[in-house]
Structure formats: C-alpha cells, structure tokens
Design a protein around this nucleic acid. Structure first.
Lengths: 142, 142
DNA sequence: CTAGTTAGTTCCTTGAGGGAACGTACTGGA
DNA sequence: TCCAGTACGTTCCCTCAAGGAACTAACTAG
C-alpha cells in the first residue's frame, strides 16, 4: 500500500512487536527476560524477534560463544522507532493514566527536566499537530 | 499492564485500527467508503468502529435521519492520536519510502512549508529523541 | 413496485496466537 | 562421571479471531 502508516505497521504492527521493542529499549535484551516480562508465548516471541531482525530494526548479537547465547539490540532504524514509542507513551499518559499518574517518567538529558514529547515542525520549529497541516499527494503516490 | 504503550495499544493496537483512523482523519468518514478504500472485511470494520467509539476516539454521528445514515468523526482524544499517526508517517517516509519519495506530503499551516514532525521536549523546546532521555519509575508504577 | 444506496449482521472456513512439552548446547557441582 | 541448571529456541495441539460472501434493514428515486 502506498501509505507510510501501512508501511510502518508492516514493521511494528503485529501484536507484541511494540512491547518487545520497548523492552529492548529499556535494557531487557534476552529471550528469557523478554518472555517472562511480557508473558507472551515463546513461539510468538521467536517469530517476532526473527521478523524484527529481518526488517532491520533489531540485531541478533552473540554475547557468549560457549554455550552460544544471544541478545537483541536496536539498530539506528530501530532506535528511531523508539521515538514513536515515546509518542505512544505521551498519548497513553494523557488519556489513560488516571489518578495514579504515569507509570514511567522520562528525563531529558539536555535540560534535566522530567518531560515528554511534543511534535514540532522540522522547518519552523513551532508546534505541529494533526490539526495544523494540509494533506497533499506526494511524489510516491499510487 | 502499568505501561502507557500497552494502554495506547489497547486503543489502536488491533489490526486495521490505525488505518481506519487515518481514513477518517483525511475525510473518509462513512462505512462504505472506508471498507472500499482499505479493502478489509465488513465484519471487522463494524467491530473496529464500534470499539473505537466505545473507547472515545470516534463519534458516530447521524447525518441523515430518513433513511438513518451515520458517519464517524474524531473526538479530541482521537485527533491527538493522529499526532501519533504523523509520527508513524515520519518513520515510514524515512525508512520505507524508497526512491519514489513519500506518497503523501504535509504542509504546516504556521509556516506554509512541506514538513514533517520532529519530537521536541515539552519543557525546553529542544529536540528530544529516545536516545536523549533517562527512563525512571513514575507515580503510577506497579 | 422495482432497483439502488448505505450500514451493517450472519455463517463458514482458514490462519494466527497460547500453553506445555521437548530439543540442544553447554557449565558447574556432587 | 552423571545430574541439575541455564539459555534459546522448536514442535504439537487447540482455540479464537479475521476474511469472504451472502443476507438483512430501512429507506429513496424512478
């Protein structure tokens, strides 16, 4: 489909994939750890990890040769997907967190403050929300 | 799960949901139109629309009383989800568009330029990527 | 009163996910 | 030497959800 949303969903649209990415982002990088933390079936986890490696967002790295043991790390392509995860966090915090407040906080290195993501325009640096744009056909249209 | 990513996925994590939202965002608001544009089964579309209305991101609005006809529109909660869609677009354009270029362009009202979303810090306004933050437990942690 | 439009619902089949057990390749201790 | 433990999967069976096609409902226009 000539739609960048659909193409992005081809990579992380399958069930569990975003949560697997989140785990690896926060340092839970091994098969057993991820399986226990998320509680998904080993079969599906194996399928997802394989798929995410094939799609270039994860790397399978041997951290012990005897016995052979592997961990999964984010590629640059995968790290940029984590920006998407932070955007999901922002929406979830705003609309689903309830009185208890957000379960996880994020401190921005540059200013040291607990903060969250706001979408800005790459050209003029001002806020840019879905209501602030016109949608036009591009060169890669069908 | 005490995770805003999981909670966001409860809302738009099911197959087709983000694409349905996209269609409604760009003005494809009726059952028949969406079904034809996406090519999903009528059954699943009916289920998704009902679910998205229950979760408060869509509104079912009667636009003709005899015969009774309905269209779907975004609530404020749903409109903010479209920021997430634009973030998905950004990643898809960058990593999956190929030589043809992006299939859709977005013009920012404020500056009139074709642009895209960059995540910035809500506190200091500087760029804020997944690599630029520390992850800490928050008040709503398990 | 017949055909067409819009918004679904129903029924059947197929495919994907869950759970539990098994396989493999080692290490370390009794 | 042999047995338990650890890490990373694979295999098998069963259930549930998605797809496709046909059907229903409630009208309108000719």
């Amino acid at each position: 489909m000539a739609c960048s949303i659909a193409r992005t969903l081809d990579v992380i649209g399958e069930p569990w994939s975003p949560l697997i990415l989140r785990d690896i982002y926060v340092g839970i990088t091994r098969f057993e750890q991820i399986q226990q933390e998320l509680g998904l079936s080993r079969k599906v986890l194996a399928e997802r990890l394989k798929g995410l490696v094939e799609k270039g967002v994860l790397e399978r790295r041997e951290y012990s040769s005897r016995p052979p043991r592997y961990e999964y790390t984010l590629t640059p392509k995968g790290l940029e997907l984590c920006d998407l995860l932070l955007t999901m966090v922002r929406w979830g915090d705003r609309w689903t967190a309830g009185d208890a407040g957000p379960p996880v906080l994020y401190r921005h290195h540059a200013c040291g403050e607990i903060s969250h993501i706001e979408p800005h325009c790459a050209k003029c640096d001002r806020p840019m929300h879905a209501t602030d744009v016109d949608v036009l056909p591009g060169p890669g249209a069908a």
